[in-house]
């Protein structure tokens, strides 16, 4: 299974295995990753699963759809690397992906 690393604002890192086909958000919830809230449960309606993608991984991801980028613009401290993890589907190509969890959601 692809291994994905979540880095907390204090630097603490957790690497977890997430099954192909799940979203990164679902894997974060399954593995108790602090800071990934996912209030709407993955329907791209709340922005509370926002994370920053590590620089060298940006190009590995398909670009966000309009419904995602609109939410991100108003998420907590959005950056170029901001993504909603409910919109990233796990594949083997994402093995090793590194995400930074924001200090707050909203």
């Amino acid at each position: 299974m692809p291994r994905i690393t979540f880095i907390q604002p204090d630097g603490a890192a957790a690497t977890v295995e997430i099954a192909n086909g799940l979203t990164v958000m679902e894997g974060a919830i399954e593995n108790d990753i602090t800071g990934v809230v996912a209030q709407c449960g993955g329907s791209c309606s709340c922005s509370t699963c926002h994370c920053y993608v590590a620089d060298d991984w940006m190009r590995a991801l398909p670009p966000p759809e309009e419904e995602e980028s609109g939410l991100i613009e108003f998420a907590w401290e959005p950056r170029e690397s901001s993504r909603l993890t409910c919109q990233i589907r796990v594949t083997d190509a994402l093995d090793g992906l590194v995400l930074h969890v924001p200090a707050e959601q909203l």
Binding site: G70, L71, E73, F74, A75
Partner: peptide, 12 residues
């Protein structure tokens, strides 16, 4: 409707 920016702006 299909307007995430308007929704998010108003939440705030």
């Amino acid at each position: 409707v299909n307007r995430p920016r308007e929704f998010m702006a108003c939440r705030k």
